[in-house]
Design a protein around this nucleic acid. Structure first.
Lengths: 151, 151
DNA sequence: TATGGCCTTGGAGCGCACTCCAGGCAAGCG
DNA sequence: CGCTTGCCTGGAGTGCGCTCCAAGGCCATA
């Protein structure tokens, strides 16, 4: 039934809950679902679009994720939070697959992303200021309203 | 021809470039396009979905935006940057239209948004740390690679 | 008077990031 | 053996936020 339900909405479990040591790191898709919060659909979709490295398979053809894959998914999750388009992440994944000679390009991509993140933080802080201003106003007006009601 | 082209990509012009004084504040849709960077399509769409207050019309039925409308669009732009869904902004717009007795609810909505923004900033700073770490690594490895090439 | 520019409308279309479906295989258990 | 559970696949569907289209009105300038 593909594990619908059990949406653990606890926002942020500790980074790596029950990760197994190198050598025995072989997780089924449903374990990865539990670790990452992504759905199995999404994990398979990431693979189809080339966002994942090659994923191991069991002798019956089922996916077996490694610690390294989990690390990659961590990074992808972080980049996703920055609003980076999936296509750009795929590009980065391609560069990684292409080997050492893409170091320079990867470096630039990361730096560009870093600049984006800084800009986004600045935007959000700007928005925060506006929000604080409005909230202050509402608190003020709300107090006046209460007084009026009471009067 | 609906003004396609002339994409002024200057990221952030001063807040209110050539705003007219109260009383003469009556802008055509294309002026608002120039001010906000939104398309005319989007402005009309915002209106259709109830995200805008009532917009004045000229005697021929064309939209005439006021300074107040521009302010509202400013706020909408800021909220958009936080990732707030348009539906939530519509809800806020509805509360404003409903009058003073929705003060409390609006206040709560703003505070919830504020909390979201803070959380998002924290996420981004977390991501920034990861990025910096990786960039440091790439800079290091890149230097080693250069040395190797030179040797 | 005709041409062009700017505006109007309802509704259809698009790109992104998933999300789900149908049909099927392999393993474990009573 | 039959049943359930968990996973597999290619492809279709969904929701959001625009984005565009076709057909037409108003008005200024040539």
């Amino acid at each position: 039934m593909e594990t619908t339900g059990t949406r653990t909405d606890s926002c942020a479990a500790p980074p790596h809950p029950h990760r197994r040591p190198e050598g025995q790191d072989s997780y089924t898709i449903s374990e990865v679902v539990a670790f990452t919060g992504l759905t199995a659909h999404t994990l398979r979709w990431y693979e189809r679009i080339g966002l994942m490295p090659h994923i191991d398979r069991s002798h019956t053809g089922q996916r077996r994720y490694s610690n390294r894959d989990l690390d990659w998914l961590d990074l992808v999750g972080k980049l996703r939070l920055t609003g980076m388009p999936v296509a750009d992440m795929v590009r980065y994944a391609e560069l990684v697959r292409e080997g050492d000679h893409t170091f320079g390009e990867r470096f630039e991509l990361l730096e560009a992303t870093r600049r984006d993140v800084l800009a986004r933080i600045a935007e959000l802080q700007d928005t925060l200021a506006v929000l604080d201003h409005k909230i202050g106003y509402y608190a003020e007006a709300g107090r006046a309203y209460e007084v009026e009601k009471a009067g």
